[in-house]
Simulated scan of single mutants.
Amino acid sequence: MELSKNEFKILKILMTSNGKIVSRDKLMKRLWDNDWYVDDNTLTVNINRLRTRLKQIGLDNFIQTKRGLGYIIM
């Protein structure tokens, strides 16, 4: 499976978080660590694209959203 740079980073961050919830803020800081303002929707789009790619290889619902908290790999 081919992933974009940001999709790969998101997957790596979630997989190395040892089953813990990763906040949207933490993901955004790790992905775009600069002074530019990055729209919150940009992360949502990247997460959705990654979910679509994972679903194509049989990993449906691999990334779970914990409303108000962030994301976790199940």
Rank of each mutant, 00 (worst) to 15 (best):
G68R: 02
S17G: 10
M15T: 15
T44Y: 10
E7L: 11
V22Y: 06
N46T: 05
Q64F: 00
N6F: 13
I47W: 03
L43P: 04
L3F: 15
N48Y: 03
Y71D: 06
E2N: 14
S23C: 05
Q56M: 10
F8E: 10
G19V: 01
W36C: 02
L69K: 15
I57P: 03
K26A: 10
L43K: 13
Q64N: 06
I73P: 12
Y37I: 04
T42L: 05
K29M: 01
L50A: 07
W36S: 11
Y71Q: 10
I72Y: 04
Q64C: 00
L31A: 07
E7C: 12
L50R: 07
Y71M: 03
Y37T: 11
L11E: 08
D40T: 11
F8C: 05
L27Q: 12
I72W: 04
I63F: 02
G19R: 06
G68C: 01
I21L: 02
V22H: 09
S4K: 13
M74W: 06
V38W: 09
K26M: 07
M15C: 14
L3E: 06
D33P: 03
W32G: 08
N34W: 09
K5P: 00
R49Q: 09
Q64R: 12
L43T: 06
L54I: 12
D39A: 13
N48K: 12
N6D: 11
K66M: 00
I10R: 15
I73Q: 14
L31G: 08
G68K: 02
W36M: 07
Y71G: 05
N61V: 03
K12E: 07
R51L: 00
R24N: 11
L50I: 08
V38E: 02
F62S: 01
I73K: 15
K29H: 10
R24S: 12
D60V: 09
L54E: 07
N18R: 14
I21S: 08
L50K: 06
D25G: 04
K20Y: 02
G19W: 04
S4A: 02
T52M: 06
M28F: 01
M28I: 10
R51M: 03
R30A: 13
L14W: 09
N61I: 01
E7W: 13
Y71W: 07
R51A: 02
N34V: 00
L14P: 08
I63K: 04
V38S: 03
F8P: 00
L27Y: 11
